[in-house]
Design a protein around this nucleic acid. Structure first.
Lengths: 288, 288
DNA sequence: ATATCGTGGAGAACGTTGTTCGCCGAATGA
DNA sequence: TCATTCGGCGAACAACGTTCTCCACGATAT
């Protein structure tokens, strides 16, 4: 460079002490996996808004530009993070006796994955849910629904619906947590408790003539925790699904030991046409 | 070329023709509402990623810094846009005979609002759903559910669930539309048709031994359009809700003319405790 | 053992973003 | 008519994603 060197702590180490130290560090040649590792580290510490390429590079002790030899763009980095989230997610073999519980277990496992890292639901929401790597999971989920006896028309729709519920619920959960953490540092349960009390008081303070139901429910609006709310929503969906079992000649409730993964051929096309899963129609035109 | 004026259309108009023209323009003194108007204009033209304070200012013909006298930050601008989306959204008086249809109509109206402007679901998802301005809508929704005969425990949960489904579904819808628009300019139905064909072919091309259900459903995975898929999911939720009607001594299905908005007192606390609507429990700790 | 080559990381730079600071010009009250 | 106040303007700042050029290192060939 044409000018003088910067102040001391920005100087690179002297060669005789840098060389021996660099050996162990430089021998790990910075793979995409390591970049994703560092990105997760930064994500948990700084949140999605604080997840910058510069910070990821700093986490690895490398230059920013070095990252681009392995990930090509920040979007691809987020994509890799998204895919890793589902790595090793097992969906059990269909057991028609327990299909409701199996669906719930899948949803709980998904929520746990989303909550495992900060702002994960935001990342998840920003990606189209079915990449090639996720096809096995999709297949096993379809097996769950079809073997339960759900009509194909419903099977094709419920996968998207479940993941939408999963991601949407967890996203909202994250947002409350973030808002809470922002307004005061106490990330313990005390802050939650106080906010619940505040909300309850707020609802109760509304004019009862204009908000009869809101005020009537105020005492309990802040009562259940997130786990219970998640379960309640899940239960609504599963109950809704169950109403399709005694339709179209499908098995009535949850008969024993019938269909397993191999029953695809015999129920192939159902009553008439079956219907769309990941397929999407036309985009509804913007209306003003 | 540090000096020289730019080409003609970037030049401001001459004073003698600008002054009379500026009168009507400058007499509109740049309210927050006008900023939001311009922001919507930019949003529809450039998308959320292209929604820049600089572009909004350009749309208004003002300087960027002028915006900050009225909106204070981009986040607040997005908040105002979010709130305007619900302005004038009417939720009908509860009709216990038609509660299922009323819920569906609300959801359809919500989806229409979200689709009315580009990337609106992304904005909506980023905001906590219940601001003070939205309380009347929330109240009327609670009325719908309670008058239908749903237990308070369910009423408190289903509002969030419906809006989650609404926003999540539309968000995914938007993402497909955006991806489609990006990969080729043809925003007509032809592009959608081609993509559906591609997806169908892709699913069908998978190895049937590893993906029996996916291949079995391939022919119909891309069959329904978004409207039908939305309705199908809605139907699942409503059916799930209906299963709660003959519980806890609530009315069996949809009896005539009972309860209206004034019935809050008599069914106040139901069987035991009722449960949380917007309240959220503690944040589940990150697990690694 | 020496010279050559190629790869991958380093550093600086570019264009763009949200936001802030100091200034000016035009309305308004005395 | 003067002083004041307020809203818009231009420039600037820090930080972002991304790209460019260059250099040092290890492996290969002679």
């Amino acid at each position: 460079m044409s000018t003088g060197p910067a102040s001391d702590d920005t100087l690179p180490a002297t060669p005789w002490e840098r060389s021996p130290r660099r050996r162990p560090a430089a021998r790990v040649p910075l793979t995409p996996e390591r970049v994703v590792d560092a990105a997760y580290e930064v994500l948990d510490r700084e949140g999605l808004d604080g997840l910058t390429m510069r910070r990821v590079a700093a986490e690895l002790g490398t230059a920013v530009s070095a990252l681009y030899a392995h990930v090509s763009s920040k979007d691809e980095l987020l994509e890799l993070m998204y895919q890793r989230m589902f790595a090793g997610l097992e969906i059990p073999d269909p057991d028609p006796d327990r299909w409701q519980e199996q669906i719930k277990e899948f949803a709980r496992a998904g929520r746990a994955r989303l909550l495992a890292h900060r702002d994960m639901a935001r990342i998840s929401m920003a990606h189209v849910p079915f990449t090639a790597g996720l096809l096995p999971q999709l297949e096993r989920m379809l097996a769950l629904f079809r073997n339960a006896g759900l009509p194909d028309r419903i099977t094709a729709v419920v996968g998207d619906m479940l993941s939408t519920y999963l991601e949407g619920f967890t996203l909202e959960e994250e947002m409350w947590a973030a808002r809470l953490a922002a307004q005061d540092g106490g990330d313990g349960t005390a802050a939650w408790e106080r906010m619940r009390a505040e909300m309850e008081a707020y609802f109760a303070s509304l004019p009862p003539d204009r908000f009869p139901h809101l005020t009537a429910l105020s005492g309990v609006m802040a009562d259940e925790d997130q786990d219970q709310r998640f379960e309640a929503g899940l239960e609504i969906i599963v109950r809704g699904l169950a109403t399709y079992l005694d339709e179209d000649g499908a098995r009535p409730a949850a008969p024993r030991g019938a269909a397993d993964t191999a029953d695809t051929a015999d129920r192939g096309a159902g009553p008439g046409r079956t219907a769309g899963g990941t397929g999407h129609g036309r985009p509804a035109p913007p209306q003003d």
